[in-house]
């Protein structure tokens, strides 16, 4: 085969070009820290990576949802603790005068304390998170209770939050099931019981006082039922959070396994290619200098 300078030049150009392309690729990988820098580098893995990244982002979203739900439920928990305290105090107070009292000051004192406690109870029921009422169902802009009537002004709706793919958790407890006994926690109308107790003490009617005190007794498990419901929801949130976080770690592991450049390997390759490229350059420069002309 005849070898002409044109051939040598073309060959050198082609190979130098190829060398530069490979160097460029490696350089890009080292600089960006990513193996796949554009979909065409590896279309199939690109798709997997995008799906994983979507999942990761979804996880982030659920974690943020969980954080918000957590806040709401913790506020609820605190309010419920307050409600339980108030009911306990009322119960103790009722215990001191179960059989009535002939001393009107004692009765008046008890009545004024109970009236105060009921106000507190209503305040607790009207606890707000930001500008939203915790216990009024979806009518978050309406105070669920008032001091003037014993009615529930909220709605019976649950407010649900998505805490994982197709897993939904309610974050609220409606005021009617808590203080009016309409739900599954118990059947005591706590507000009415307070009023009944107050009027029984005012009338000094021991039978009615005992009756109301008994109802107060029954309302304590009703409130603790609500508290344990909230606790179990908080638990569930915690579990979901742990699961999402561990999923997240796994996914991040997979992403970094496929996408992150092994720096040692890449740097070694880069050095090797660089040496090869330098050799090619010097060979090209030397070969193209050779000519019969120099010897004529």
């Amino acid at each position: 085969m005849r070898v002409t300078p044109g051939m040598t030049a073309n060959n050198a150009m082609y190979n130098l070009q190829k060398g530069r392309t490979i160097l460029g690729r490696l350089q890009e990988q080292v600089a960006s820290g990513m193996v796949i820098n554009r979909p065409s580098d590896d279309p199939i893995t690109t798709r997997q990576l995008l799906e994983l990244e979507n999942k990761l982002e979804e996880g982030e979203q659920y974690l943020s949802n969980i954080t918000k739900a957590n806040l709401w439920l913790k506020m609820t928990n605190t309010a419920l603790g307050g409600v339980a305290d108030v009911v306990n105090q009322a119960r103790k107070l009722a215990g001191t005068i179960t059989s009535g009292s002939s001393d009107s000051t004692v009765r008046e004192n008890a009545v004024s304390q109970l009236t105060e406690l009921k106000k507190q109870l209503v305040d607790m029921g009207n606890t707000q998170f930001g500008d939203q009422y915790l216990f009024s169902g979806s009518k978050t802009d309406t105070p669920p209770f008032s001091n003037t009537d014993n009615l529930y002004h909220g709605s019976g709706d649950a407010i649900a939050v998505e805490i994982d793919r197709s897993s939904i958790s309610a974050i609220n407890i409606t005021g009617d099931s808590l203080l009016m006994g309409t739900g599954s926690y118990g059947s005591v109308h706590v507000l009415q019981t307070f009023d009944d107790l107050i009027s029984a003490i005012q009338a000094n009617n021991p039978a009615n006082i005992r009756d109301a005190a008994l109802k107060l007794d029954n309302s304590i498990p009703q409130i603790s039922n609500a508290i344990s419901d909230v606790s179990s929801r908080l638990n569930r949130l915690e579990n979901a959070k742990t699961m999402i976080s561990s999923d997240k770690a796994t996914i991040q592991g997979i992403i970094s396994d496929t996408q992150s450049v092994d720096m040692i390997e890449a740097a070694t390759k880069l050095t090797l290619r660089q040496t090869a490229f330098e050799a090619a350059l010097s060979a090209t420069a030397k070969i193209s200098q050779l000519s019969l002309l120099d010897y004529m």
Binding site: E58, Q132, S136, G137, S138, K139, T140, D141, T142, G154, S155, G156, D157, I159, A160, V161, E162, R165, S166, I168, N172
Partner: peptide
Amino acid sequence: PTSLLSGPGDNGNALKLAGLQS
């Protein structure tokens, strides 16, 4: 939400719209 039985805290449809992602 303006009706008697419901209020502005109702997120039922937002949940469904968010669910369209999956």
